[in-house]
Design a protein around this nucleic acid. Structure first.
Lengths: 228, 228
DNA sequence: AGTTAGTGATAGTAATACTATTATATTTGC
DNA sequence: GCAAATATAATAGTATTACTATCACTAACT
């Protein structure tokens, strides 16, 4: 993905980190290698000791950037959603026709993630894998309500809100815009996961099928004609 | 829910346990108190030592029934899906009209869980909470492919298959029957979770709304007339 | 030159997720 | 009724995890 502006930064809730990892070389290496390590071994088998070793540093240094691995996951996924939101806004900006705008939005949300050279130390494709496999674990906890109050899920909620607005722009009388928006976002990740691990449970064996499935689902719900 | 038959047993993959918990009083207490404990403290804060203490027994005794807490979660969720499948079959059995049959199925899958007196030692409502909050964690692991091969997710997959068949009975040409079925099953749980913790992301504030959302979504996808 | 911030190394702690062993209680088979 | 088998309970031990605390070193800045 090419950007019009080269100096964009993704703003993540400051409470997710102790010290901003973007502020130092070590911080960036923590994020970069953290993404690689989690996508290799999975979040359960990931810890700060392994990460420290991987970057030729130490467990204690990682703790100076992130309180614990749960917060680290929230940081990473917030960054991802912020990045995705940026793409969504860029792609749909200035489109007047609500139906076409919604179509473009669904395309952004279902297309596979490509590397983005603007953020050199972040491997967006690996990060996307992490989000698919681990994101649910960041909110399926007993602390979800407190953490939600503290704003850890703001960006994701804003994404759902944006999609909801685009749905309502097409059909202001549709009564389930929030549910449809959250179903599409969650469903896109889930269908991607199923494709990899439970192929019999999905028809979305490629990018186009995934897009067409959700496009069909959304536009028939809104009772709007689509061109095939 | 009242049953026609009183001697039904839910068959769970034998590999999920070391010794069948249904075969002894202690086993049933492990399951019963395990459900209570997990729904109270969450799966992360749950362990066999706490469970042993709660049933006036010992950690080591629990290990004789279940290899580890991950397998215990798979056992519990398999039991839940087996129980839900049984309800689905009972409810839709002998219905000739495909659209009506699918409607009844969606109703079963979206309605809140009530206690079922046929399985005295299992609190189905608490178990449903566990499934909503923890089920994803049973397959969002690095071991998912191996465990899938070993058949740990068979019942859930069969459920998706049944719903898929009912969808195809209504519209044999619909190209996304598997994806729609898996989206409905996963989505129903997710919308329920959102209602509890992220109410702004859902319109399903009650049982009827949840049912109507998915009914609308499914039947408009299939382009079949529904009565509101 | 002295303070400070950032990093690295080591050690220690409480809890977790088990395994192994032994002891006791209960059931069963004859 | 008793021996053998089985089920359960208690204890101890291990490796790992998820941290916390302390100290030492270096670079930078004042």
């Amino acid at each position: 993905m090419k950007h019009l502006i080269n100096t964009v930064k993704i703003a993540v809730n400051e409470k997710t980190y102790v010290k901003n990892p973007e502020s130092s070389d070590l911080g960036k290496r923590i994020v970069q290698s953290g993404i690689a390590l989690i996508s290799e071994v999975g979040f359960e088998n990931f810890n700060f000791r392994k990460l420290g070793a991987r970057i030729g540093s130490n467990e204690s240094s990682v703790y100076r950037y992130f309180e614990n691995k749960h917060k680290f996951l929230i940081y990473l996924s917030s960054w991802y959603w912020g990045w995705k939101e940026y793409q969504l806004v860029l792609t749909t900006n200035n489109i007047q026709d609500p139906a076409f705008k919604l179509e473009r939005a669904l395309n952004v949300l279902t297309e596979p993630v490509e590397a983005d050279s603007s953020f050199s130390y972040i491997d967006e494709a690996a990060l996307y894998q992490i989000v698919i496999n681990e994101y649910s674990k960041s909110f399926l906890t007993k602390e979800v309500d407190r953490e939600n109050k503290e704003g850890y899920f703001e960006i994701y909620k804003r994404m759902v809100g944006r999609l909801q607005d685009m749905i309502l722009a097409v059909d202001p009388d549709y009564p389930f815009a929030a549910s449809l928006a959250s179903t599409v976002l969650e469903g896109a990740m889930h269908q991607y996961f199923l494709k990899e691990h439970f192929p019999s449970l999905t028809d979305c064996s490629d990018k186009d099928a995934l897009y067409n499935f959700f496009k069909h689902q959304v536009f028939t719900s809104l009772n709007v004609q689509i061109d095939d």
